[in-house]
Design a protein around this nucleic acid. Sequence first.
RNA 1: GGUCUUGUAGUUCAACGGAUAGAAUAGAAGUUUCCUAAACUUUAGAUCCGGGUUCGAUUCCCGGCGAGACUACCA
Length: 597
Amino acid sequence: MVIEQQITKAIIAGIKELYGADVTANQVQLQKTKKEFKGHLTLVVFPFLRQSKKSPEQTAQEIGAYLVAHEPAVAAFNVIKGFLNLTVASACWIDLLNGIAAQPAYGLTPVTEESPLIMIEYSSPNTNKPLHLGHVRNNLLGYSLSKILFANGNRIVKTNIVNDRGIHICKSMLAWQKWGNGATPASTGKKGDHLIGDFYVLFSNKLKEETKALEEQGLSKEEAEAKSPLMAEAREMLRKWEAGDPEVRALWETMNSWVYAGFDETYKMMGVDFDKIYYESQTYLEGKAKVLEGLEKGIFYRREDGSVWADLTKDGLDEKLLLRQDGTSVYMTQDIGTAKLRFDDYPINKMIYVVGNEQNYHFQVLSILLDKLGFAFGKGLVHFSYGMVELPEGKMKSREGTVVDADDLMAEMIQTARETSQELGKLDEMTAEEAEEIARMVGLGALKYFILKVDPRKNMTFNPKESIDFNGNTGPFIQYTYARIRSVLRKAAEQGITLPEQLPLDFTISEKEENLIQLIADYAATVKEAGKLYSPACIANYTYDLVKEYNQFYHDFSILREEDERLKLFRLVLSANVAKVVKSAMSLLGIEVPERM
RNA sequence: GGUCUUGUAGUUCAACGGAUAGAAUAGAAGUUUCCUAAACUUUAGAUCCGGGUUCGAUUCCCGGCGAGACUACCA
């Protein structure tokens, strides 16, 4: 990074001197040299042909010659077509490594009181069923994004909005009342969220029986559902809830508390957390008030049946319902209320919603509505929209029972990690606790890495079997490399070798090693890019590149057997810094790395 | 129908408008007196189709075709 800036400056000066033209740093396309060519950095000279009025080759030759003569960092150059490949002096690379070694938090931007405050919402579960694979992607993306933005020098508030009210919860409650026989998490040994989820499924099944019977009498699906006594009971329960009926509220409180206990367990296992949790039961009234306020100001309008709407046809969208004819609020209304509360609570500079892409339209509308209502942040809200997770067999369908449960999934991943380790005899010398801890890190690392390495916008296929592959572009492979480096460093310490804080600059290292230093140094730029693009995938793929490169390098020789003491120390320092960067990068993904495995 | 997203090796993923489109996996062939073989080496294989902009297009624009999501008084 520093080297690039230095050379960019020299190039600008060179073009000024050679062709008398002024160019900006933006026009200087200095990129990493491709592997198959000699050199570290490549200048694309096509943009400068206008100034030089010469052929690409000749222009590149002239700039190259100038740089070698005037810029000490450039040791040599070669020209291929319109590409000027520059070789940077070894001493520069060692100097760069010294600089990185001296910074414990290399690549990370410190956060101060004055840093921008970003609120990031993710997870957002319903309280009527346990978390599934889709939530897993959401949680991992949200958590990783918060770490990445923090690493880029932002203050972060992680938040969760729990959909704790509505007809869906009433369905679970009703089923529990009717057929639950007083079951509790304690009495059944089930996690609270799973217990409630089971009752929700039970309700759906009973309802299906009922509507099926009605449909056979000639009613349409909608009519059958409208006439179903069970649905009527559920709706009645929701009405009572809204009216504050003490009995319904008490049941609601109890059942929600079971669910939250279950969620907490899942979040803890997943390694995600929140700074502030909002509940829709506490925000929907706020939203209603805000909508009525907008109605008074003439931003919205009321239809004859009493329902309240926003006309967004001028914005190229449809009309949107905000309050039902009975005055109750809808999803959008609640989001308006939640937004208001949040901005009352925190001086937020930017709001990011991590929500699936099926809600793209919703957030488009929300942004416009908030703007119309006079919230300064409305236009700037970010909907971090991610794609669906599919299975090799196709989409997850709750109706067909193909939904992958988050708890089950994590348990399976850990179990597979455990079995694989046992087969390989890796855990023989460890205590049971150590082995279990490593199985946990590896199993979850495999899951997290597999999901985060994919571009968030894209739909992805999650293959549980492949994800825990210990080869290739996977979490375990990266963890393994890290553990191996740590092992080398431990052995070095046992041999009484202490790593110098600064390496001398006056010895030669191989081009491969120079490339590796370059790759380590790229970490800082990668973190910035990930912050700009909101992309954990960026970090993941970088980490794999680094680890892969290191493995090839490492395979060629034995560091501890190296007889040249200076070279040995250099390689140890190099390894230590690879480990440092890998650990830091993985931490941005929310993945732990074991010291041994 | 409309809006948005997306289309790259058999498969899963990469590629600020730059060189011969990278990896991984599955396939084929190898490597262990070596700090952890969960590794490494070699090999074969892809940009949906048609136009346009450009010195140069997987990338940007237009038109097809395919996939997905949304278009609820569900959340």
